[in-house]
Design a protein around this nucleic acid. Structure first.
Lengths: 203, 203
DNA sequence: GTCTATAGATGGATAGAC
DNA sequence: GTCTATCCATCTATAGAC
């Protein structure tokens, strides 16, 4: 990808994050790039094409981060810890892009929408497999693994919404706190059981 | 509020939820209401006014639900349980409106934006007070109560994003599962401590 | 309270010169 | 690869009749 195209993409990320996709015009993107709006069309087919480029790259990088973090880890608890850490750190470091990914899917055509949600679903399934594995190995409480995976992922995804680079706590500490909280909620305690009567007798 | 105005509001909710605020035109809202787009302006000053009406009502109702749920409950754990239940059930029953509330704040002028975020902040502070109280009474682990409150709230807020009325589990069961998970993660265990070395020595 | 008609502005996208 | 110029569609909002 050419340097100019990269610049357009980065300016689009800044603007889609700050103003939203629909409220950002091609002219808005062209201005900080130092070119006229018509020149954008030399690099991208249309406005949606820019959005799609951002979303696709983000999903690919997110997935790669997960794979790198869990590679070679066998213990179910440690593997889940690594996965959560990867997710949180990525959502802090790529704050703008993941917020766009979570809020601007409506800007995509049906075809592109399907492509992105397919990637997202595959990513989510990897998390669900980790939880399912922990439950089967009797390390985790037998929650409904799909429902609980939504909760865990969204809780970590939302870090991107409130994290401030100059905030009180460093990213590693936030990632550790959330990982502790989640693993503590997931782990089976051998001296006691869940207090609620809603516990399921699956498996 | 007149019946016609209510109808306009409800159609706006449906459309803002499905297409987004910026992608919805005044004409789109007028059509299912059975009037022409110019007639909308008899009931509302402008497009933003409709959005603001929706957001304000939603925040007021959300806050009232919380107050009703925790009223008269004294035990810190039970109070937190009631608060979480209120939040989840509301986000399931008012799915469309809360999703609009979480994604369309950019459609507001600065003044209206401040009014809504002020209400939201007050609501969040009530949750933080519950967690803080539980920590002080030594019922909850001494996590950073602000950071952990973000995680808890967003995890429950996100239920609105994936919940399907005809889905596998009824709303009460989902609320119970999440409440168990969160309380379990929050509660102090008298026979063991957090495994991580990151535990803070505040208080 | 709703209508028709239209002002007034903006934005995505293309044509064609350089 | 970038420019100027422009087409065309769309949208918010208002004016004024009924």
């Amino acid at each position: 990808m050419s340097e100019k195209k990269e610049a357009i993409k980065q300016n689009a990320i800044d603007l889609f994050y700050k103003k939203g996709y629909f409220a950002t015009s091609i002219g808005d993107i062209a201005r900080p790039t130092g070119i006229r709006k018509s020149s954008i069309y030399y690099h991208y087919q249309n406005k949606e094409d820019i959005l799609f480029d951002i979303l696709k790259t983000t999903m690919l990088d997110l997935d790669r981060s997960l794979e790198e973090h869990i590679e070679g880890v066998d213990d179910p608890e440690q593997k889940m810890r690594s996965a959560i850490t990867s997710h949180i750190i990525f959502h802090i470091e790529r704050q703008k892009e993941v917020i766009i990914s979570d809020s601007e899917l409506r800007g995509l055509s049906l075809e592109n929408y399907k492509a992105i949600t397919k990637m997202r679903d595959k990513y989510e399934h990897k998390f669900q497999a980790l939880i399912k594995n922990g439950i089967q190995k009797q390390v985790f409480v037998d929650y409904d693994f799909k429902i609980i995976s939504y909760g865990i992922l969204t809780m970590c995804t939302a870090v991107a919404l409130w994290f401030r680079p100059k905030g009180r706590l460093p990213k590693r500490e936030i990632a550790e706190m959330y990982t502790d909280f989640i693993i503590d909620g997931l782990k089976k305690k051998h001296d006691r059981q869940r207090s609620s009567a809603s516990k399921k007798g699956r498996g």
